[in-house]
Amino acid sequence: MDRWQAMRIFAKVAETESFAETARLMHMSAPTVTRIVASLEDLIGARLFVRTTRSVKMTEAGTRYFDDCRRILADIAEAEAAAAGSYATPAGTLAVTASAMFGQMYVLPVMTEYLDTYPTMGGRTFFVDRPVNIVEEGVDVAIRIGHLPDSGFTAIRVGSVRRVVCGSPGYFEKHGVPSTPADLKAHRVAASTSAWASPEWRFAGDQRVTIDAILQCNTNEAAIAVAKEGWGLTRVVHYQIGPALIAGDLQIVLADYEEPPLPIHVLYPEGRHAPAKVRAFVDLAVSRLRENRLLN
């Protein structure tokens, strides 16, 4: 008996829950499928299916064997694909998601470099400020900020982000630099309601300050623009003001009081079985994001 073929047939019966459907999909006769599964059961020494006139269900032993078969068959498929070259060259379309502002500022340059490197590839981006279900929405790679729940996906940490209070040098020359979180009450604040809906700003050591923001902006970009103009202070995630920090348009204050930073991960579902298009993008994204000093 061809053990590999028998495992393929068994796995297909487990997926379809039908000997007849398996026979049709694999271009075999139903009696042949039945015979091969029975021979496999004899070889293993355990019943893999419970058969009735109306259904085919796996036994407990069959369920365990099915998990092992899927892993073994995937390893074989990957080895064959690698030998044939299909896993060596990226092909198709790559879908990537990230939060809106982070995606535009830091992920989009990675995507365009990736597409320049692999001109036969296509790309799609989903830069939105909401959780994206990677599997249901057909996304290949996600860049996530924050602590990740257990998902079974592969996650590679590439940096971290801080919640920071910032203002322009001109503003600090006129109004002074706050030395403690409590000093913020004496300063004008433009708050971004999209990121900081709560008027309570939290700092290290469980310090909390209720901010009476004179100006409330519905986007981070607007709050940052106001701060750059020297009108007042704002609080954002530090990657959002990276270019302004480099240009000297903004500076961070109260750094000693910041909460612990949030991690940034590159996340993808297939692990070591990921196709070449995913692995190539992940390698590039990890390299580019880790070397960005604003994210570390």
Rank of each mutant, 00 (worst) to 15 (best):
F153R: 05
T16M: 14
R188N: 07
Q5V: 04
D42I: 04
V141F: 06
E229K: 05
E291K: 09
T32L: 06
R293A: 15
P149L: 06
V253I: 05
T180N: 10
F10T: 04
I214V: 03
I36Y: 08
L184G: 13
A14T: 09
G271N: 08
P169E: 10
G92H: 05
A100V: 01
R51H: 02
G152N: 08
I134E: 04
F203R: 05
C217P: 09
L289H: 09
P109G: 13
F49W: 02
I134D: 12
A14C: 10
S151E: 12
E221A: 14
A81D: 05
T125W: 00
R24P: 00
K174E: 15
M121L: 08
V128P: 00
R290Q: 12
V237Q: 15
D150T: 04
G167W: 14
Y171W: 04
K277N: 10
R71C: 10
P109K: 11
V37I: 01
G152T: 04
T234I: 07
L250C: 12
R293H: 09
V158W: 03
A142H: 09
A6D: 07
Q251A: 07
S192D: 15
A23G: 02
E258C: 10
S151T: 13
L295T: 11
V282C: 09
A223L: 05
L48N: 04
A225K: 06
S151K: 13
I72V: 08
I252P: 13
P275H: 06
M28Y: 10
S198L: 13
V253R: 11
A23W: 03
E17T: 14
T97S: 14
G122A: 13
T53L: 02
G232N: 07
D140C: 03
G176F: 00
K185E: 11
A83Y: 08
I36M: 08
D129I: 13
P243Y: 15
